[in-house]
Write a protein that binds this DNA or RNA. Structure first.
Lengths: 339, 339
DNA sequence: TTGTAGGCGTTATCAC
DNA sequence: GTGATAACGCCTACAA
């Protein structure tokens, strides 16, 4: 009932492959072939193309998908509350790179527009509707969202290691542990002895792994030198104040992100500590703002372009039915003025 | 080829309605009925539900859609560059209201994630993939995006009158012309005689209609009293400066949006003109910031909740195959300190 | 190279 | 109420 017949006048659109075949004087098979770039006689091809233009033919995606065609859309799921992450120019670059690469394959990206519901609700809904692969950002440990996708056999590719789902979802990541270790080791090589850290949220991979690298590198682990951040500037300020209170003698702070490092810088300034003289400060990501702080941030560079490349590669693989796989890329120490 | 068979172990998911029917010991018809809430015997229903849970059945959207089921997703297309609009709390409310209402109907909203491509490219792509209705925001005059959707027989519902497409797309709007007329008439009633205006972009409905209302209400039309804004704060500041230069004797400024009115306020302050004593200032929208400016803005209130209600109503109608239709809602003058 | 026919997973229309 | 069975629009062997 829901599809009301159109009144009299001949409407455009809504023509099928059969219509095209008829006006082109060929079989549907041939039409399908030109549609998919399969070998077809030059004349038939031209006839079909003319017919398609004439009838205003637009392929029905649902039918294609049903018939087993390659998915043409990947869903993007951003688990972080708000769109904090998307404000980061680096992540933006990452996303744009992916978009471009996928576009070349004629694949588009969509995202659920989140309403009042929790991200999990959204993803459940998502899972129920699209059988396409899902690209996930900022997936927290054992995310219910991912579980529901995996349970439904929907291929998931995660940006960063999906804690608790390593076996079932593809991922591309960087060697956070090594990066943190490198930077803390560097701080030690510069004579710093009381090195503190402002962590990322501990339910995110950046939280656990960068802290692990920190522990690897420090001589002895002092809980008073650890404060938990939440990837925000304000959170880092608070964390730093706490650190300064707990361990007034600290001589270095490693923040698990550049944005947080900026917060650390601000807090140090407010506390009257000079950077890097009194306190060395290091960040992570080599985000754009690493260059705009005073002093500029010593940090760990993530290879964003390669990252995007790997992401699309994995996405495409999952589309082609491959099993989940992960890759961890090496990372590079960038030394600037802050440490 | 693209669907590689899964290895040995029994996988969950991907079970069909046939599987469910088999384990439930009923026909697919019955399964479909419980799926869609059609009348079914209590015992069969229970058996089916048990079977669905057991097999981890998830309906295939593509198949449903192909078979003519009601679409379960509407696409959201925001034509404005950047996400300027979404920063507006009112618009956000609008969107959330829609989301909630659609959610009640079990309909989700998705949006293409825009890459480097122009909005038109995005919408073309969109048009080629989804046959679902599209909700459009900020559609400029004769938008190519809308044309391509309409040409493909994809139902479009516009937020605001879609200039150049009035006959082919549904829309809900408010009586901008009347609102502008009301507010300018009010300004005149307060003794203002040289009333200027900062318009919205002239390719958007708010641009042409609010200016039309202004012209309706002023005694004589003086081009020197008109400056074009672009819905931004900064643009309004510039426009106001221009106005002040062109017509130093003006005694009132009607801005086509509250955000722009805030810019007008700032420019007036900078120019040393007192509001409302020297210059009366009026806005439009009754946005949240209308209450935070000094003085608070006299403005035109748009009934956001009713707006959202109408929007979903029209969306639902189009889903049910109804022809395009539009509605224009009345608007209310809100008098505060600025004029 | 091209046509034919079967199948993809649901919904809806029939009879029963 | 329930079970067959045609669509729905496309893809892809298979045959010619």
């Amino acid at each position: 009932m829901s599809r009301r017949a159109q009144d009299g006048r001949p409407r455009a659109g809504r023509s099928t492959i059969y219509d095209v075949a008829r006006v082109a004087g060929v079989s549907v098979g041939t039409v399908s072939r030109v549609l998919n770039g399969h070998p077809v006689g030059a004349d038939s091809r031209k006839a079909v193309q003319r017919a398609m233009a004439g009838t205003g033919y637009v392929p029905n995606q649902h039918a294609r998908q049903l018939a087993g065609a390659r998915p043409e859309t990947v869903a993007f799921l951003h688990c972080a509350p708000g769109d904090r992450l998307l404000a980061d120019p680096n992540i933006n670059t990452l996303l744009l790179d992916c978009l471009r690469a996928l576009g070349d394959q004629n694949i588009m990206m969509i995202t659920p527009v989140a309403g009042g519901g929790s991200p999990d609700v959204v993803s459940q809904t998502l899972a129920a509707r699209l059988a396409d692969p899902v690209l996930v950002f900022t997936a927290p440990r054992s995310s219910a969202a991912i579980t529901s996708l995996v349970d439904r056999d929907i291929p998931v590719v995660s940006c960063g290691i999906p804690l608790g789902h390593e076996r079932h979802v593809s991922y591309v990541s960087t060697d956070d542990r090594d990066g943190a270790q490198q930077i803390v080791t560097y701080l030690r090589s510069r004579g710093r002895r009381r090195i503190a850290t402002v962590t990322a949220p501990m339910d995110l991979p950046g939280g656990v792994q960068r802290l692990a690298g920190y522990r690897d590198a420090v001589a002895t682990f002092d809980p008073a030198l650890v404060a938990h951040g939440d990837y925000t500037y304000a959170g880092a300020v608070t964390a730093t104040e706490q650190l300064l209170r707990q361990a007034p003698d600290l001589d270095a702070i490693f923040a698990a992100s550049d944005l947080m490092a900026a917060g650390v810088l601000a807090a140090c300034a407010k506390a009257g500590r000079r950077v890097p003289d009194d306190i060395a400060v290091a960040g992570y990501d080599d985000a754009a703002l690493a260059l705009t702080t005073r002093p500029q941030l010593t940090t760990v560079r993530i290879p964003w372009h390669r990252y995007a490349d790997q992401l699309t590669r994995h996405l495409l693989r999952r589309i082609d039915g491959d099993d989940p796989s992960g890759v961890v890329m090496p990372v590079e120490l960038i030394i600037r003025g802050s440490a």
